[in-house]
Write a protein that binds this DNA or RNA. Structure first.
Length: 428
DNA sequence: CTATAACTCTCAA
DNA sequence: CTAACGTTGAGAGTTATAG
Protein backbone atom coordinates (compact mmCIF):
# COMPACT_ATOMS: atom_id res chain seq x y z
CA UNK A 1 0.00 0.00 0.00
CA UNK A 2 1.44 3.38 -0.97
CA UNK A 3 2.01 6.18 1.50
CA UNK A 4 1.47 9.76 0.36
CA UNK A 5 2.58 12.91 2.06
CA UNK A 6 1.74 16.40 0.96
CA UNK A 7 3.54 19.55 1.90
CA UNK A 8 1.50 22.73 1.55
CA UNK A 9 2.79 26.20 2.33
CA UNK A 10 0.55 28.33 4.53
CA UNK A 11 -0.87 31.46 2.85
CA UNK A 12 1.94 31.10 0.33
CA UNK A 13 1.98 34.45 -1.50
CA UNK A 14 1.29 36.39 1.70
CA UNK A 15 4.05 34.50 3.53
CA UNK A 16 6.50 35.29 0.70
CA UNK A 17 5.79 38.99 1.06
CA UNK A 18 6.15 38.88 4.84
CA UNK A 19 9.47 37.14 4.53
CA UNK A 20 11.00 40.31 3.07
CA UNK A 21 9.03 42.78 5.17
CA UNK A 22 9.62 41.74 8.78
CA UNK A 23 7.83 44.81 10.10
CA UNK A 24 4.64 43.30 8.68
CA UNK A 25 5.05 40.19 10.79
CA UNK A 26 1.83 40.54 12.75
CA UNK A 27 -0.04 42.74 10.29
CA UNK A 28 -2.86 41.72 7.97
CA UNK A 29 -1.37 41.25 4.51
CA UNK A 30 -3.14 40.35 1.28
CA UNK A 31 -1.86 39.66 -2.21
CA UNK A 32 -3.94 40.69 -5.20
CA UNK A 33 -4.61 38.94 -8.48
CA UNK A 34 -3.43 40.32 -11.80
CA UNK A 35 -4.64 43.84 -12.45
CA UNK A 36 -4.80 44.31 -8.66
CA UNK A 37 -8.32 42.93 -8.89
CA UNK A 38 -9.13 40.31 -6.28
CA UNK A 39 -7.60 39.00 -3.08
CA UNK A 40 -5.87 35.72 -3.89
CA UNK A 41 -3.87 35.24 -0.70
CA UNK A 42 -4.41 36.34 2.88
CA UNK A 43 -2.17 36.20 5.92
CA UNK A 44 -3.63 34.69 9.08
CA UNK A 45 -4.37 38.22 10.37
CA UNK A 46 -6.23 39.07 7.15
CA UNK A 47 -8.26 35.86 7.36
CA UNK A 48 -9.13 36.75 10.96
CA UNK A 49 -10.65 40.00 9.69
CA UNK A 50 -13.08 37.92 7.66
CA UNK A 51 -11.69 38.78 4.24
CA UNK A 52 -12.95 36.08 1.91
CA UNK A 53 -10.83 34.49 -0.81
CA UNK A 54 -11.47 36.17 -4.13
CA UNK A 55 -12.91 39.38 -2.70
CA UNK A 56 -12.61 42.36 -5.07
CA UNK A 57 -10.03 44.69 -3.52
CA UNK A 58 -11.94 47.89 -4.29
CA UNK A 59 -14.77 46.66 -2.07
CA UNK A 60 -12.43 46.31 0.90
CA UNK A 61 -11.17 49.90 1.02
CA UNK A 62 -12.97 50.85 4.22
CA UNK A 63 -11.86 47.72 6.02
CA UNK A 64 -8.35 48.18 4.69
CA UNK A 65 -8.04 51.72 6.04
CA UNK A 66 -9.60 50.73 9.32
CA UNK A 67 -7.14 47.90 9.96
CA UNK A 68 -4.20 49.16 7.91
CA UNK A 69 -4.25 46.10 5.69
CA UNK A 70 -1.19 45.95 3.46
CA UNK A 71 -1.88 44.83 -0.11
CA UNK A 72 0.65 43.64 -2.67
CA UNK A 73 0.37 43.07 -6.38
CA UNK A 74 1.27 39.51 -7.39
CA UNK A 75 5.05 39.15 -7.71
CA UNK A 76 5.25 35.84 -9.55
CA UNK A 77 9.00 35.92 -10.04
CA UNK A 78 9.53 36.12 -6.31
CA UNK A 79 7.00 33.39 -5.54
CA UNK A 80 8.36 31.06 -8.23
CA UNK A 81 11.89 31.41 -6.92
CA UNK A 82 10.90 30.72 -3.32
CA UNK A 83 8.77 27.81 -4.49
CA UNK A 84 11.82 26.27 -6.17
CA UNK A 85 13.76 26.58 -2.93
CA UNK A 86 11.02 24.83 -0.99
CA UNK A 87 11.05 21.95 -3.50
CA UNK A 88 14.84 21.67 -3.18
CA UNK A 89 14.46 21.16 0.55
CA UNK A 90 11.63 18.66 0.12
CA UNK A 91 13.79 16.58 -2.22
CA UNK A 92 16.13 15.95 0.70
CA UNK A 93 13.34 13.99 2.35
CA UNK A 94 12.20 11.76 -0.52
CA UNK A 95 13.46 10.89 -4.00
CA UNK A 96 9.91 10.67 -5.40
CA UNK A 97 8.01 13.89 -5.44
CA UNK A 98 5.30 15.55 -7.52
CA UNK A 99 5.28 19.33 -7.71
CA UNK A 100 1.54 19.77 -7.78
CA UNK A 101 1.35 23.56 -7.74
CA UNK A 102 3.42 26.57 -6.79
CA UNK A 103 2.86 25.89 -3.08
CA UNK A 104 2.10 22.16 -2.87
CA UNK A 105 4.07 18.99 -3.46
CA UNK A 106 3.06 15.36 -3.03
CA UNK A 107 5.81 13.19 -1.52
CA UNK A 108 6.01 9.45 -1.86
CA UNK A 109 6.77 7.99 1.55
CA UNK A 110 6.68 4.39 0.33
CA UNK A 111 9.19 2.39 2.30
CA UNK A 112 9.30 4.92 5.14
CA UNK A 113 6.79 3.08 7.31
CA UNK A 114 9.50 2.06 9.75
CA UNK A 115 9.78 5.73 10.70
CA UNK A 116 7.50 7.73 12.92
CA UNK A 117 5.86 9.43 9.94
CA UNK A 118 4.35 12.29 11.93
CA UNK A 119 7.78 13.02 13.34
CA UNK A 120 9.25 12.91 9.85
CA UNK A 121 6.57 15.40 8.81
CA UNK A 122 7.58 17.71 11.65
CA UNK A 123 11.20 17.54 10.49
CA UNK A 124 10.13 18.49 6.98
CA UNK A 125 8.23 21.58 8.00
CA UNK A 126 10.91 22.66 10.43
CA UNK A 127 13.59 22.36 7.77
CA UNK A 128 11.59 24.36 5.21
CA UNK A 129 10.89 27.01 7.82
CA UNK A 130 14.52 27.20 8.84
CA UNK A 131 16.14 27.10 5.41
CA UNK A 132 13.62 28.99 3.27
CA UNK A 133 11.73 30.89 5.94
CA UNK A 134 8.25 29.86 4.88
CA UNK A 135 5.70 28.04 7.05
CA UNK A 136 3.82 24.99 5.83
CA UNK A 137 1.89 21.93 6.92
CA UNK A 138 2.20 18.22 6.21
CA UNK A 139 -0.60 15.71 5.63
CA UNK A 140 -0.03 11.97 5.41
CA UNK A 141 -2.36 9.22 4.23
CA UNK A 142 -2.74 6.08 2.10
CA UNK A 143 -4.07 8.03 -0.92
CA UNK A 144 -3.58 11.47 -2.38
CA UNK A 145 -7.11 12.45 -1.42
CA UNK A 146 -6.55 11.33 2.17
CA UNK A 147 -3.20 13.13 2.33
CA UNK A 148 -4.91 16.33 1.18
CA UNK A 149 -7.55 15.86 3.82
CA UNK A 150 -4.88 15.25 6.45
CA UNK A 151 -3.26 18.49 5.37
CA UNK A 152 -6.54 20.30 5.91
CA UNK A 153 -6.68 18.81 9.39
CA UNK A 154 -3.11 19.87 10.12
CA UNK A 155 -3.82 23.44 9.00
CA UNK A 156 -7.01 23.82 10.94
CA UNK A 157 -6.11 22.21 14.23
CA UNK A 158 -8.28 19.11 13.80
CA UNK A 159 -5.44 16.95 15.01
CA UNK A 160 -3.22 18.81 17.40
CA UNK A 161 -1.39 22.00 16.58
CA UNK A 162 2.00 20.88 15.35
CA UNK A 163 1.15 21.36 11.67
CA UNK A 164 1.25 17.64 10.87
CA UNK A 165 -1.52 15.07 10.55
CA UNK A 166 -0.98 11.40 9.78
CA UNK A 167 -4.22 9.59 9.06
CA UNK A 168 -2.39 6.25 8.97
CA UNK A 169 -1.79 6.51 12.70
CA UNK A 170 -5.49 6.77 13.54
CA UNK A 171 -7.64 3.87 14.66
CA UNK A 172 -10.77 3.10 12.65
CA UNK A 173 -12.89 4.65 15.37
CA UNK A 174 -10.85 7.85 15.54
CA UNK A 175 -10.86 8.15 11.74
CA UNK A 176 -14.62 7.72 11.76
CA UNK A 177 -14.98 10.44 14.33
CA UNK A 178 -12.64 12.79 12.47
CA UNK A 179 -14.34 12.28 9.08
CA UNK A 180 -17.67 12.88 10.74
CA UNK A 181 -16.52 16.34 11.81
CA UNK A 182 -15.20 17.51 8.45
CA UNK A 183 -17.59 19.02 5.93
CA UNK A 184 -17.75 17.22 2.60
CA UNK A 185 -16.93 20.42 0.75
CA UNK A 186 -13.38 20.23 2.10
CA UNK A 187 -12.67 17.10 0.08
CA UNK A 188 -10.33 17.50 -2.89
CA UNK A 189 -12.51 17.45 -6.00
CA UNK A 190 -15.70 18.57 -4.30
CA UNK A 191 -16.35 22.13 -5.38
CA UNK A 192 -19.35 24.41 -4.92
CA UNK A 193 -21.70 22.68 -7.32
CA UNK A 194 -21.05 19.12 -6.28
CA UNK A 195 -21.16 20.14 -2.62
CA UNK A 196 -24.68 21.51 -3.07
CA UNK A 197 -25.90 18.38 -4.85
CA UNK A 198 -24.37 16.13 -2.21
CA UNK A 199 -26.06 18.16 0.54
CA UNK A 200 -29.43 17.60 -1.14
CA UNK A 201 -28.82 13.87 -0.94
CA UNK A 202 -27.99 14.09 2.75
CA UNK A 203 -24.27 13.65 2.24
CA UNK A 204 -22.78 16.42 4.32
CA UNK A 205 -19.68 15.05 6.03
CA UNK A 206 -16.58 13.37 4.70
CA UNK A 207 -17.74 10.23 6.44
CA UNK A 208 -21.05 10.32 4.55
CA UNK A 209 -19.21 10.51 1.24
CA UNK A 210 -16.74 7.80 2.19
CA UNK A 211 -19.64 5.47 3.03
CA UNK A 212 -21.68 6.28 -0.09
CA UNK A 213 -22.17 3.60 -2.77
CA UNK A 214 -19.51 4.14 -5.45
CA UNK A 215 -21.79 2.83 -8.22
CA UNK A 216 -24.50 5.27 -7.20
CA UNK A 217 -21.99 8.13 -7.05
CA UNK A 218 -20.76 7.21 -10.52
CA UNK A 219 -24.24 7.18 -12.02
CA UNK A 220 -25.45 10.32 -10.28
CA UNK A 221 -22.18 12.25 -10.65
CA UNK A 222 -19.13 10.99 -12.50
CA UNK A 223 -16.28 8.55 -12.58
CA UNK A 224 -14.16 11.30 -11.04
CA UNK A 225 -16.20 11.50 -7.85
CA UNK A 226 -16.40 7.71 -7.74
CA UNK A 227 -12.60 7.66 -7.59
CA UNK A 228 -12.75 10.17 -4.76
CA UNK A 229 -15.03 7.86 -2.78
CA UNK A 230 -12.64 4.97 -3.32
CA UNK A 231 -9.68 7.08 -2.27
CA UNK A 232 -11.50 8.08 0.92
CA UNK A 233 -11.79 4.35 1.61
CA UNK A 234 -8.03 4.01 1.37
CA UNK A 235 -7.91 2.61 -2.18
CA UNK A 236 -5.30 4.56 -4.11
CA UNK A 237 -6.56 5.52 -7.58
CA UNK A 238 -4.37 8.54 -8.25
CA UNK A 239 -0.66 7.99 -8.68
CA UNK A 240 2.30 10.28 -8.15
CA UNK A 241 3.20 12.15 -11.35
CA UNK A 242 6.87 12.96 -11.05
CA UNK A 243 7.27 14.39 -14.54
CA UNK A 244 4.84 17.00 -15.72
CA UNK A 245 3.48 16.00 -19.15
CA UNK A 246 3.65 18.52 -21.98
CA UNK A 247 0.72 20.90 -22.18
CA UNK A 248 -2.09 20.00 -24.57
CA UNK A 249 -3.14 23.62 -24.79
CA UNK A 250 -1.42 26.86 -23.95
CA UNK A 251 -3.27 30.01 -22.95
CA UNK A 252 -2.39 33.59 -22.39
CA UNK A 253 -5.06 36.09 -21.43
CA UNK A 254 -5.31 39.25 -19.37
CA UNK A 255 -7.84 41.75 -18.16
CA UNK A 256 -6.96 45.27 -19.26
CA UNK A 257 -5.93 48.03 -16.88
CA UNK A 258 -8.68 50.18 -18.38
CA UNK A 259 -11.40 49.62 -20.99
CA UNK A 260 -10.16 49.45 -24.57
CA UNK A 261 -12.17 50.74 -27.54
CA UNK A 262 -9.71 50.83 -30.42
CA UNK A 263 -8.84 48.00 -32.75
CA UNK A 264 -5.18 49.03 -32.68
CA UNK A 265 -4.96 48.48 -28.94
CA UNK A 266 -6.56 45.06 -29.21
CA UNK A 267 -4.08 44.15 -31.95
CA UNK A 268 -1.23 45.21 -29.68
CA UNK A 269 -2.52 43.22 -26.74
CA UNK A 270 -3.19 40.07 -28.73
CA UNK A 271 0.23 40.26 -30.39
CA UNK A 272 1.81 40.42 -26.95
CA UNK A 273 -0.22 37.50 -25.58
CA UNK A 274 0.46 35.44 -28.67
CA UNK A 275 4.20 36.05 -28.31
CA UNK A 276 4.06 34.80 -24.75
CA UNK A 277 2.05 31.74 -25.72
CA UNK A 278 4.51 30.97 -28.53
CA UNK A 279 7.43 31.20 -26.09
CA UNK A 280 5.76 28.67 -23.81
CA UNK A 281 5.07 26.45 -26.82
CA UNK A 282 8.74 26.50 -27.83
CA UNK A 283 9.82 25.76 -24.27
CA UNK A 284 8.26 22.34 -24.64
CA UNK A 285 9.52 21.98 -28.22
CA UNK A 286 5.99 21.91 -29.54
CA UNK A 287 4.11 23.22 -32.53
CA UNK A 288 0.43 24.16 -32.56
CA UNK A 289 -2.11 23.08 -35.15
CA UNK A 290 -4.75 25.64 -34.18
CA UNK A 291 -5.14 28.93 -32.42
CA UNK A 292 -8.06 30.60 -30.75
CA UNK A 293 -8.56 34.26 -29.97
CA UNK A 294 -11.24 35.75 -27.75
CA UNK A 295 -12.34 39.25 -26.75
CA UNK A 296 -14.55 40.20 -23.81
CA UNK A 297 -16.42 43.20 -22.54
CA UNK A 298 -16.85 43.65 -18.78
CA UNK A 299 -19.46 41.17 -17.49
CA UNK A 300 -19.58 43.05 -14.18
CA UNK A 301 -21.22 45.95 -15.98
CA UNK A 302 -24.38 44.28 -17.29
CA UNK A 303 -25.85 47.67 -18.19
CA UNK A 304 -23.20 48.11 -20.87
CA UNK A 305 -23.50 46.26 -24.18
CA UNK A 306 -21.88 42.85 -23.89
CA UNK A 307 -19.87 41.09 -26.56
CA UNK A 308 -17.80 37.92 -25.99
CA UNK A 309 -16.65 36.72 -29.40
CA UNK A 310 -14.12 34.01 -30.03
CA UNK A 311 -12.83 32.18 -33.07
CA UNK A 312 -10.73 29.09 -33.58
CA UNK A 313 -8.45 28.93 -36.58
CA UNK A 314 -6.89 25.67 -37.73
CA UNK A 315 -3.38 26.29 -39.06
CA UNK A 316 -2.47 24.81 -42.44
CA UNK A 317 1.00 24.03 -41.14
CA UNK A 318 1.58 23.49 -37.42
CA UNK A 319 4.14 26.00 -36.14
CA UNK A 320 5.71 27.70 -33.15
CA UNK A 321 6.93 30.71 -35.11
CA UNK A 322 5.91 33.86 -33.29
CA UNK A 323 5.62 35.80 -36.52
CA UNK A 324 3.27 33.32 -38.14
CA UNK A 325 1.14 32.89 -35.03
CA UNK A 326 0.90 36.64 -34.46
CA UNK A 327 -0.09 37.23 -38.07
CA UNK A 328 -2.96 34.75 -37.92
CA UNK A 329 -3.95 35.99 -34.48
CA UNK A 330 -4.19 39.56 -35.69
CA UNK A 331 -6.31 38.51 -38.65
CA UNK A 332 -8.72 36.86 -36.26
CA UNK A 333 -8.87 39.96 -34.07
CA UNK A 334 -9.82 42.04 -37.09
CA UNK A 335 -12.61 39.60 -37.86
CA UNK A 336 -13.93 39.63 -34.31
CA UNK A 337 -13.66 43.36 -33.63
CA UNK A 338 -16.86 45.43 -33.52
CA UNK A 339 -16.69 49.17 -32.96
CA UNK A 340 -18.40 50.66 -29.95
CA UNK A 341 -17.76 48.08 -27.28
CA UNK A 342 -15.69 48.63 -24.15
CA UNK A 343 -13.37 45.63 -24.21
CA UNK A 344 -12.01 44.53 -20.85
CA UNK A 345 -10.13 41.35 -21.63
CA UNK A 346 -8.60 39.39 -24.47
CA UNK A 347 -6.74 36.14 -24.79
CA UNK A 348 -5.27 33.52 -27.05
CA UNK A 349 -5.09 29.74 -26.88
CA UNK A 350 -2.82 27.41 -28.82
CA UNK A 351 -4.10 23.85 -29.28
CA UNK A 352 -3.49 20.74 -31.30
CA UNK A 353 -0.01 20.75 -29.83
CA UNK A 354 2.47 18.18 -31.13
CA UNK A 355 6.22 17.72 -30.75
CA UNK A 356 8.10 19.78 -33.33
CA UNK A 357 9.65 17.86 -36.20
CA UNK A 358 6.74 15.43 -36.22
CA UNK A 359 4.55 17.89 -38.04
CA UNK A 360 4.80 17.18 -41.75
CA UNK A 361 7.35 16.64 -44.44
CA UNK A 362 10.43 17.94 -42.65
CA UNK A 363 13.20 16.01 -44.40
CA UNK A 364 12.08 16.27 -48.02
CA UNK A 365 9.92 19.30 -47.58
CA UNK A 366 11.24 22.24 -49.59
CA UNK A 367 10.22 24.50 -46.72
CA UNK A 368 12.37 22.73 -44.19
CA UNK A 369 15.38 25.00 -44.54
CA UNK A 370 13.31 28.14 -44.09
CA UNK A 371 11.63 26.45 -41.15
CA UNK A 372 15.03 25.78 -39.65
CA UNK A 373 16.04 29.41 -40.07
CA UNK A 374 12.81 30.53 -38.43
CA UNK A 375 13.56 28.12 -35.59
CA UNK A 376 17.01 29.63 -35.14
CA UNK A 377 15.57 33.12 -35.03
CA UNK A 378 13.00 32.13 -32.43
CA UNK A 379 15.65 30.39 -30.32
CA UNK A 380 17.79 33.52 -30.52
CA UNK A 381 14.89 35.71 -29.40
CA UNK A 382 14.10 33.36 -26.53
CA UNK A 383 17.74 33.34 -25.47
CA UNK A 384 18.02 37.11 -25.45
CA UNK A 385 14.79 37.53 -23.56
CA UNK A 386 15.84 34.95 -21.03
CA UNK A 387 19.16 36.65 -20.45
CA UNK A 388 18.03 40.27 -20.45
CA UNK A 389 14.47 39.98 -19.19
CA UNK A 390 11.15 39.50 -20.88
CA UNK A 391 10.52 42.00 -23.63
CA UNK A 392 14.17 42.88 -24.17
CA UNK A 393 13.71 41.92 -27.78
CA UNK A 394 10.33 41.71 -29.44
CA UNK A 395 8.47 42.12 -32.69
CA UNK A 396 7.83 45.64 -33.92
CA UNK A 397 4.08 45.24 -33.37
CA UNK A 398 4.67 44.98 -29.65
CA UNK A 399 5.26 48.53 -28.56
CA UNK A 400 6.13 49.87 -25.16
CA UNK A 401 3.40 51.68 -23.20
CA UNK A 402 -0.26 50.82 -23.44
CA UNK A 403 -3.64 51.61 -21.93
CA UNK A 404 -4.47 47.91 -21.81
CA UNK A 405 -1.55 46.89 -19.67
CA UNK A 406 -2.62 45.57 -16.32
CA UNK A 407 -2.34 47.52 -13.13
CA UNK A 408 0.40 46.39 -10.79
CA UNK A 409 0.66 49.37 -8.50
CA UNK A 410 1.67 47.57 -5.36
CA UNK A 411 4.56 45.35 -6.37
CA UNK A 412 7.27 44.34 -3.96
CA UNK A 413 10.83 44.11 -5.34
CA UNK A 414 11.99 40.84 -6.87
CA UNK A 415 14.27 40.33 -3.88
CA UNK A 416 15.75 37.02 -4.94
CA UNK A 417 16.05 37.28 -8.71
CA UNK A 418 16.96 40.89 -9.52
CA UNK A 419 19.94 42.75 -8.05
CA UNK A 420 18.52 46.01 -9.39
CA UNK A 421 15.48 45.77 -7.20
CA UNK A 422 17.22 45.09 -3.91
CA UNK A 423 16.62 48.03 -1.60
CA UNK A 424 19.87 49.93 -1.07
CA UNK A 425 21.66 48.52 -4.08
CA UNK A 426 20.70 51.45 -6.29
CA UNK A 427 21.72 53.95 -3.68
CA UNK A 428 25.30 52.72 -3.54
C1' DC B 1 -25.11 4.90 -36.93
C1' DT B 2 -20.48 5.54 -35.39
C1' DA B 3 -16.27 7.98 -34.72
C1' DT B 4 -14.51 12.13 -33.97
C1' DA B 5 -14.53 16.91 -33.09
C1' DA B 6 -16.20 20.67 -30.66
C1' DC B 7 -18.12 22.50 -26.91
C1' DT B 8 -19.70 22.74 -21.90
C1' DC B 9 -19.12 22.01 -17.14
C1' DT B 10 -16.54 21.49 -13.04
C1' DC B 11 -12.58 21.83 -10.37
C1' DA B 12 -8.08 23.37 -8.62
C1' DA B 13 -4.33 26.47 -7.25
C1' DC C 1 -8.33 62.08 -8.82
C1' DT C 2 -11.51 58.04 -10.21
C1' DA C 3 -12.77 53.50 -10.99
C1' DA C 4 -11.98 49.36 -9.92
C1' DC C 5 -14.03 41.86 -9.90
C1' DG C 6 -7.74 36.47 -11.96
C1' DT C 7 -5.30 33.04 -14.96
C1' DT C 8 -4.26 28.63 -16.68
C1' DG C 9 -4.97 23.99 -17.44
C1' DA C 10 -7.07 19.24 -17.14
C1' DG C 11 -10.55 15.89 -17.87
C1' DA C 12 -15.16 14.07 -18.36
C1' DG C 13 -19.43 14.26 -20.37
C1' DT C 14 -22.50 15.98 -23.93
C1' DT C 15 -23.71 17.59 -28.33
C1' DA C 16 -22.77 18.45 -33.18
C1' DT C 17 -20.94 16.90 -37.41
C1' DA C 18 -18.86 14.10 -40.98
C1' DG C 19 -18.77 10.10 -43.51
Amino acid sequence: MPIFGIFDNNNFYASCEKLFAPRLKDRPVVVLSNNDGCVVARSAEAKALGIPMGAPWFKLQDLARQHEIVAFSSNYELYADLSDRVVQVLRLFTPNLEVYSIDESFLSLDGFSHLDLADYGRQIRERVLQWVGLPGCVGIGPTKTMAKLANHCAKNGFAGNDGVCNLLALSAVDLDDLFGRIKVGEVWGVGRKIDARLQEMGISSVRDLRDADPAMIRSRFSVVLERTVRELNGVSCLSLKEVAPDKQQIMCSRSFGEPVYELDDLLDAVATYMSRAAEKLRQQQGVAAALMVFLQTNPFKPAEPQYHPSMTLPLPDPTSDTRVLVQWGLRVVKRLYRRGYAYKKAGVMLSGIQPEGMSRGSLFDSQSSTDAKAGNLMALMDGINQKWGRGAIRLATEQQHHPWQMRRDRMSPRYTTSWDELPGVLAK
